[in-house]
Simulated assay, not measured.
Amino acid sequence: MHQSHNIAWDSLTSNLTFIAENPALTPRRTDFFPRGLPSQANSLNHFARTVATTIRTFSDTERAKYPTKFDAPVEGKLFPDSILKLNRALDRVGGANTVVDLADVVKVLLAENQLDQLLMLAHHPSIPLVHLHRLSGGHGFGWERVIDAYIFFNVLLSKPELHADGWYKSMQSYKYMLINSTDYDAWTFPHCKFFFGVVDSGGNRESADPLADFNKLHEHLKMCFQLLYRYDMLARECGVDLDWESEVAATVGWMWKVKLGGST
């Protein structure tokens, strides 16, 4: 599992059990379910803290690589030509035509590790990056899907008995995670090449086999983690202090109905 020396994955995985067609539910559902152990609350809170601490540590290390101050251009091109080639959404943001276009730009630059450009935007008086954190239009806008995939696949790696014959594909949380990670261009950028071998979102979800190549999966998890700490760095540059413990709680809550407060 990724960052296993820093993140207490066992504190989460030991509290989950796989049940096929759970008879306690109507309709029945196949997935991981909380075991309801007496230690659940403490274990899951510990897990969330280690995720938050690890993201913040890497975020601090990444920020230290760049100057403390950035001078934003007030005229001329906002992005150099080499950056404009990355994604067509960048062409639409001269003075930020729409916040959705700007959100697309941020995702592309995060994925391409163009952090100097993002730090410049964070200090630009005409670019409202701070307003993008909770931008929504009926969907999440990207980074939430990264933490979903990051947690899901790390937990799945701890359950090798589900790898054979594609058992994991019957899990409701897998189906939701796959749909949420690949249903719109803006946030499919980091995921579609991994799932489908292509950058756009035109892949066949039924044919996706994320466990076919474990080296590729580990690289994907590494990339997801990079996106999380890069995003944390950028958010803090904009004055937004992310509550990663709450984000982790929300993720395990919607995927597996586990509450870090102790109830299930």
Rank of each mutant, 00 (worst) to 15 (best):
I7N: 02
S11A: 14
T13D: 07
L16K: 07
A20Q: 08
A20M: 08
E21R: 09
A24Y: 10
T30N: 02
F32M: 09
A52N: 02
T54G: 00
F58H: 07
F58D: 06
S59V: 00
S59G: 11
A64R: 12
T68W: 06
E75I: 06
K85P: 03
K85Q: 06
R92Y: 06
V93E: 04
V106H: 14
K107T: 05
L110Q: 14
Q114E: 15
Q114R: 15
L115R: 05
S126K: 13
L129I: 05
R134N: 15
L135K: 08
L135A: 11
G138W: 00
G138H: 03
G140N: 12
F141T: 08
G142N: 07
G142Q: 07
V146E: 04
Y150Q: 10
F152I: 06
F152E: 02
L156I: 08
L162S: 08
L162H: 03
G166D: 10
Y168G: 00
Y168I: 06
Q172W: 06
Y174T: 04
Y174C: 04
K175G: 11
M177T: 13
N180V: 01
T182H: 03
Y184S: 12
T188W: 00
H191Y: 02
F194D: 11
F196A: 02
G197N: 03
V199I: 06
V199K: 07
G202C: 07
P210E: 01
P210M: 07
L211Y: 07
A212T: 08
E219S: 10
E219N: 15
L221R: 09
M223D: 10
C224F: 11
C224A: 15
L227Y: 01
L228S: 03
R230D: 06
M233D: 01
D241W: 01
D241N: 10
L242N: 09
T251E: 14
W256H: 03
K259V: 03
K259P: 04
T264A: 10
T264N: 14
T264S: 11
